[in-house]
Design a protein around this nucleic acid. Structure first.
Length: 279
DNA sequence: CCTGAAACCTGTCTGC
DNA sequence: TGCAGACAGGTTTCAG
């Protein structure tokens, strides 16, 4: 599901507590359960459940679209992929609402407070790693788009060092941390007035600057709005009310917004042919 | 190096 | 009503 703003929102809710749920910080793990073995990417089930028992959650951080818990003696890293979610619920009073698919819980961390961290993931694409060293996963990730250390000049240099189509390049996490995400890359390219299939090495410094600024605008706005709620997978955000091209095919102001699949970096792509020209 | 297709999965929606 | 097919916010791997 989640793109960067949704992941960041989930992180903040875990840290600050949300809707009557407590913060996950300083909670001590009484017992861990791996309910679907495929979720744990790099260790074995018994080892995992035994290792994390008794450990405390010291912090929750994000790198790209990875969320990770710093435990007393290790890191527990999550990637939500297309349908994952992380939330707290009471062990003896699980959430019940139409979209609470308890049968798709993949991991439980039960705390001695009576609360439980649930990793729920309908499509089973999500993964969890138990790590001593974060670099084993984070080494190949590109620069964080919202980090001011990434200057327009750097971004331009990175763009022209490749000859890639912009849309798939923005989804490539080795190019920019976490990729920009499908919705947010469509929105950013629209704001920057760049065609999704423009070759990266054809951009001027001015265009690259516009693109970087547009990426920062849409990601920041997405975080401010606590992500986008577009279907049953993730709810609670309002950024969908600010979409300018994504799923805006019917907006008369955007003439002939094209939605083409599998030829556009394998993803549904929305753009305005009038204001995002290839030539 | 670059592109596109396939793979990993389950739920929802559309159209016949 | 049922059913087939398309589609979904991500990423990796492989063939050409």
């Amino acid at each position: 599901m989640p793109e960067l703003p949704e992941v960041e929102t989930i992180r903040q809710r875990l840290i600050k507590g949300f809707g009557g749920r407590p913060s996950i910080l300083d909670q001590t793990i009484l017992q861990a359960r791996l309910l679907w073995s495929g979720t744990l990417a790099n260790a074995n089930n018994n080892y995992f459940e035994g290792f994390v028992r008794g450990q405390q959650v010291l912090s929750v951080d994000r790198r790209a679209k990875f969320l990770y818990l710093t435990l007393t003696d290790a890191y527990l890293v999550f990637h939500l992929r297309m349908s994952g979610d992380l939330f707290m619920e009471q062990i003896d009073q699980p959430e019940t609402h139409p979209y609470r698919y308890a049968q798709h819980d993949r991991v439980w961390l039960d705390f001695d407070s009576g609360w439980r961290l649930v990793f729920n993931d309908i499509r089973k694409f999500g993964r969890m790693w138990l790590l001593k060293d974060l670099d084993t996963i984070f080494a190949k990730i590109g620069p964080e788009p919202l980090d001011e250390a990434l200057t327009p000049n750097d971004f331009h240099q990175n763009l022209i060092s490749k000859s890639r189509q912009l849309k798939p390049l923005l989804l490539d996490q080795s190019f920019i941390a976490g990729g920009v995400g499908n919705i947010y890359s469509d929105e950013a390219l629209f704001i920057a007035g760049l065609h999704p299939l423009r070759k990266s090495d054809s951009l001027s410094l001015l265009e690259a600057t516009r693109l970087l600024n547009a990426i920062r605008i849409v990601l920041s706005k997405g975080i401010d709005q606590k992500g986008a709620s577009i279907d049953w997978v993730y709810r609670g955000g309002d950024f969908q009310n600010f979409f300018q091209v994504y799923q805006q095919e019917d907006q008369p102001a955007l003439v002939a917004v094209v939605r083409s699949k599998k030829k556009w970096g394998q993803r549904g792509t929305h753009f305005c042919p009038n204001c995002q020209r290839l030539d």
